[in-house]
Amino acid sequence: MDHELDEHRLPAHVAIIMDGNGRWAQQRHLPRIAGHKRGMNVIEEITTTASDLGIKVLTVYAFSTENWKRPAKEIKYIMSLPTIFFKNFVPKLIKNNIKVTTIGDESALPPATQAAVTAAKEDTSENTGMILNFAINYGSRDELVEVMQRLGSFVQQGKLRPDQITAATIASQLETAQFGEAADPDVIIRTSGEQRLSNFLLWQAAYSELVFTNTLWPDFTSADFMDCLLEFQNRHRRFGGVKNK
């Protein structure tokens, strides 16, 4: 695209469904894990670009609750990636003042994966710049079920009346509540041409702009990212209201 981004209208929270690693590898007659390895490098590039632009939160869909259905060998490799990724990237994250957070059930991850994720969060906990948020073993329906169970428990304990449960109450219990005003993504980008949310941030996506690109994640560049943000800026967000005239 020829037009430049308006730095005053950048999204506060960008979420990305990183899709197409397997297809990228298969097109090159490589094992699927080669796509995941290449995709890891793309995360570094896009994280750096997003941080330089001044985006507040970048959420990447790293591993869904449904991804456990994949072949055991592929899962084992994916679970080894955080150890490699954070070993190489944490020094750069610290240098760029980027903070690592996660959403999802980490308790189901292999111990080595948990340790790598925990260390990355601890090592960057004092950083005050962009938040790099990994959705790992995350599923939006599971997140919502846990919220409902928690609120039900509050009601049972007499801490909350059913009529006191509002949209704001539910939002406050979601894992993204930690991001404050940037809890909901302004834009969700999905690579590889697929056009669905795949159980990703279903509540939070209520008014997100959805941008789909045919580019496979391992081929996704900073220029592609900027194009997606430009498409976002060309949308007119009305949040259910009427466009201002």
Rank of each mutant, 00 (worst) to 15 (best):
D2R: 09
V14F: 00
V14T: 04
A15F: 04
I17M: 09
D19H: 00
G20E: 11
G22T: 03
A25D: 11
Q26F: 11
L30R: 10
P31E: 07
R32N: 06
I43C: 10
I46E: 08
D52M: 10
K56C: 00
V57F: 09
L58C: 04
L58M: 06
A62L: 08
F63T: 06
K69S: 12
A72G: 03
A72K: 15
I75T: 11
I75D: 01
Y77R: 09
M79Y: 06
M79L: 04
T83C: 04
T83K: 14
I84R: 14
F85N: 06
V90T: 15
V90D: 02
P91G: 10
L93C: 02
T101M: 03
D105Q: 08
E106Q: 13
A108V: 05
L109P: 03
A115L: 10
T118Q: 13
D123N: 13
D123Q: 15
S125K: 15
N127E: 07
L132Q: 01
N133H: 02
I136D: 02
Y138H: 04
E143I: 07
L144W: 11
V147Y: 05
V147R: 01
Q149C: 09
G152P: 02
Q157N: 05
K159M: 07
A167Q: 06
A168E: 15
T169M: 11
I170L: 13
S172A: 15
Q173E: 15
T176E: 02
A177E: 13
F179D: 09
G180N: 10
A182N: 12
P185C: 05
V187W: 10
I189K: 10
S192I: 00
F200E: 10
F200D: 07
L202Q: 04
A205S: 15
Y207G: 08
S208W: 02
E209F: 05
T213L: 01
T213R: 01
P218A: 02
T221N: 04
A223H: 07
M226H: 14
N234P: 02
N234H: 13
R237N: 10
F239P: 01
G240K: 12
K245D: 12
K245C: 03
